[in-house]
Amino acid sequence: MQVPINTRINQRSYELEVDARTTLLDLLREKLDLKSVHRGCEEGECGACTVLLNGKPVCSCLVLSPQINGAEVLTVEGLMKDGNMHPLMKAFVENYAMQCGYCTPGMVMTSYYLINTWDDFTEEDIRKGLEGNLCRCTGYTNIIRAIREAKKYKDAGYWW
């Protein structure tokens, strides 16, 4: 069944016809070519497909595409400005916070939400906030470091 939807994805408005059984993950990847959104477990267990839906992190594999009607979606592509990496992404790269990179875009989106939500946070807060983003490579150490460094960028007034 095709369903018409209106949505904003990465600051751009779309009018789309979607097959109701298509997940948001597949819509973003296959129809809109937003390949930062990675297919992980497709059952909400790994967080590799995390996007912000109306400003909050969700697993795009668990959202049916008609459900984003009237909503706003943000992916890593939408964090970039004129092809430049967002300071948060820069902090990930500088702090070796990625190895294979498969979990990274999802990790970035959750981190973006966390930094924007909290004025201040502890390491425990970051750990609790990232519990839904699995990483098999890094042991999370450098990811936590990167988020702290990114927060410094934000506080120092870098574009955000």
Binding site: R29, K35, V76, E77, V93
Partner: peptide, 14 residues
């Protein structure tokens, strides 16, 4: 790393 974090990595599924 910059390429992958920007969503421009090409994994098989991409």
């Amino acid at each position: 790393e910059e390429k992958i974090i920007s969503g421009k990595g090409i994994y098989v599924d991409d």
